[in-house]
Simulated scan of single mutants.
Amino acid sequence: MGFETAAVIAIFFVSAIILGTSAYTVISASEERIDEATDLKHEMQVKRLQTDLNITNTTTDNSSDTYNLTVTVSNSGSVTLDSGKLDVLINGTLMSYSTSSPDTWTPDKIRNFTINNISKGSASEHRVKVTTENGISDYATYPI
């Protein structure tokens, strides 16, 4: 009876060591992922705080049923933006745009974005929204 008890205790002891080692590995990996995510969140918050843009001008080129819109936007923040990763919305609809400038958009620089073949619709005043890759945006209204 003594040998069997000692064998059971030894098996439980080895099992506890194996489970403890496995648990430590899983917890350690989880902690690393949490630390990486926290660092990324902090970096994103800093970029958002340092990003700003202003729509300085809107120009329309009228044709019969559609028009072209040129939006002049200033990067007034301190973060270099990628002008190819902006979203431009006209009256809440995501539109494709073109720009003749390179994608790198440094602070205090101005870019022109052109949206072609926009339907006039029934409203006399329209709204344009430009949003950066990290969620900062500016709005403007323009008449047709």
Rank of each mutant, 00 (worst) to 15 (best):
A37V: 00
Y67H: 09
V46Y: 00
T99W: 06
K41G: 10
T114F: 01
S74W: 04
P102W: 09
M95E: 10
T70P: 05
S83P: 07
L89I: 11
T99M: 11
T58R: 03
I115T: 09
Y97D: 10
N112D: 15
P102Q: 07
G77Y: 09
I110D: 12
K41E: 14
L81D: 00
S63H: 12
L81M: 02
P102V: 09
S28N: 12
Y24H: 08
D52T: 07
D35G: 01
K109E: 14
T21A: 05
S76D: 10
L53H: 02
V73S: 05
T70M: 04
T104K: 11
T72Y: 03
I17T: 08
I115K: 05
D87L: 15
A23I: 06
M95F: 02
V88P: 05
Y24C: 03
Q50M: 15
T60Y: 02
A37I: 01
T60N: 01
G84Y: 11
H42S: 05
D61A: 12
M44N: 15
L40M: 14
G20N: 07
N112P: 07
D52V: 05
V71L: 02
L81V: 00
R111V: 12
S28H: 11
S64C: 06
T70L: 01
A37C: 01
G20V: 03
E43P: 03
I27P: 01
T25N: 12
F113C: 04
N57V: 00
T99K: 11
L86Q: 04
E32I: 15
T60K: 04
L49K: 08
T51R: 01
K109V: 10
D87P: 03
I90T: 04
I110L: 09
A29D: 14
V73D: 02
N68R: 07
A37K: 04
N62F: 05
S96F: 09
N57M: 06
R48H: 13
G77D: 10
T25D: 10
T58F: 00
T106S: 15
E36G: 00
V71I: 14
E32Y: 09
S30F: 13
T70I: 03
L81F: 00
T93M: 08
N75D: 05
A29N: 15
D65R: 11
A37G: 00
I27V: 13
Y67G: 10
T21C: 06
T21F: 07
T59N: 08
L53F: 02
L19G: 05
I90V: 14
T106Y: 12
L19H: 09
K85N: 15
T104F: 06
I110Y: 06
T58A: 06
K109W: 05
S63F: 09
N112I: 04
G92Q: 01
S15E: 07
G92E: 03
I34N: 08
S98D: 12
D82I: 00
V73K: 04
K109N: 13
N68T: 13
T72H: 02
N112R: 13
S22I: 08
G77E: 09
Y24D: 04
D61Q: 14
K85P: 12
L86P: 02
T58H: 03
V88M: 11
S74D: 12
S63V: 06
T93N: 10
T59Y: 05
S98Y: 09
N116G: 09
T51E: 04
